[in-house]
Design a protein around this nucleic acid. Structure first.
Lengths: 226, 226
DNA sequence: AATGATGTACGAACTAGATAGTACAGTCAA
DNA sequence: TTGACTGTACTATCTAGTTCGTACATCATT
């Protein structure tokens, strides 16, 4: 009694006649990414993903092998998208302080705009990074991630404005922590403190705090002591 | 034909004869907490939990209703344990700087020691905090979480050592972010940068960085500008 | 003390439905 | 005709939750 079937006498409302493997893959991957980001690896349902695509479940297995293969591709895609976005950051010609400020603000906003990516990373960490470990592609993508902050910091030290002896990877770690947490733990944090940490004014404060934390951390001079 | 019955002539290898509801609950909850922390809500298997307890699956449903009920209790238990641990922090009599230092170091170590808790919070955030929302118990537990940092900061401002105008909840947010991220994202971060962020020496550096970030952030004076 | 009734604590086996994955029969362009 | 691509209709298995039942303690009644 299959009522709502796609009518095969028609060319399926448009361009289904021309084989378009790449488009098929992309469509599946897009839907799958949302499902995985929302429900996790074990929580996502292949049938649900298939239902939301323009294709049948069969296609998922044809192109991605199995559920874990699909997840891995979704994870890779998330990293790739975000890393590509980061390429648009332009800090050449800025002073070290201005550059670091822009880098932190950008990272904060970028993470905020890419909640799906944050959730994928959370999920992957729940799995102890076991899928990331399989992905040569992701590691290759990320080696350049600290280039920006590394260069900014070096220039700041040369200019005598930043203190020497700090580790760019650790600086990146700190920026990441503050920007990531803002998205990843907003739900529980907001509930516990009865305050919406996603409100624009609050976000702006958190962002400025983050900038200031980093600027103060790299600044010359000693931390306060007794 | 029930072969493997508990032999009623013997006291079942110990103390199974005395009914012990509280012990049963505790045993189930302990195992369940580990399973949920390891695999998430949808990833955890009731059968697996049951197999690891000294009891049958029937008991889980007898005491906890359903899978979500069990998860909720595990979540509450995680928060309770961690909050109880925090009560042991003694900072009375210390100067604001020393007190803040100790608070941050303690928080860093405490999070590090309670990975299971961190994972439960990650998982709960994946679920948008929808179970935490149901738990009056957890919210009641957490209202006192910022008392320490709030008092330290006030004293520091009074002493003229910390700058005024900061929000204790935001300070707590920053400490949490840095300490939480260290545990939650260690897997992916370590892989991407090919460096073990769980190594003792590295942890020590991250901890000192975190202390220094907080001390510099609350210190008097301006952040560096152009 | 013996008997029976009741409630708590627990287990074995089962069920209904969900879910990942597949067999097979195509379609369509070159 | 070939081979890449796609849909339909499955299946095997897994999984949350249930049914039915037992063992034992307590308490009231005789």
């Amino acid at each position: 009694m299959t009522v709502a079937k796609t009518d095969k006498s028609k060319p399926d409302a448009g361009a289904a006649r021309v084989p378009d493997p790449e488009g098929t893959r992309r469509n599946i991957l897009e839907i799958a990414s949302k499902e995985f980001a929302l429900n996790g690896l074990s929580g996502a349902r292949i049938d649900e993903i298939a239902a939301r695509t323009r294709f049948s479940k069969r296609m998922i297995y044809y192109y991605f092998g199995d559920k874990e293969g699909l997840y891995l591709r979704a994870l890779e895609d998330a990293y790739r998208q975000v890393r590509e976005g980061e390429a648009h950051l332009d800090i050449e010609g800025l002073s070290p302080v201005a550059a670091l400020t822009r880098l932190v603000e950008f990272t904060f906003d970028h993470h905020h705009r890419h909640e799906e990516f944050i959730r994928m990373v959370m999920i992957e960490n729940i799995h102890h990074g076991q899928y990331l470990k399989q992905s040569e592609a992701i590691r290759a993508l990320n080696v350049t991630a600290i280039d920006h902050i590394s260069r900014i910091y070096s220039r700041g030290v040369e200019d005598g404005i930043f203190r020497p002896g700090l580790d760019p990877v650790e600086l990146h770690w700190q920026v990441s922590a503050l920007c990531f947490f803002n998205v990843s733990n907003r739900a529980t944090f907001s509930m516990i403190f009865g305050r919406d940490f996603g409100a624009p004014a609050q976000l702006e404060r958190l962002k400025q705090n983050t900038v200031e934390m980093m600027l103060r951390f790299v600044a010359r001079g000693e931390a306060p002591a007794e």
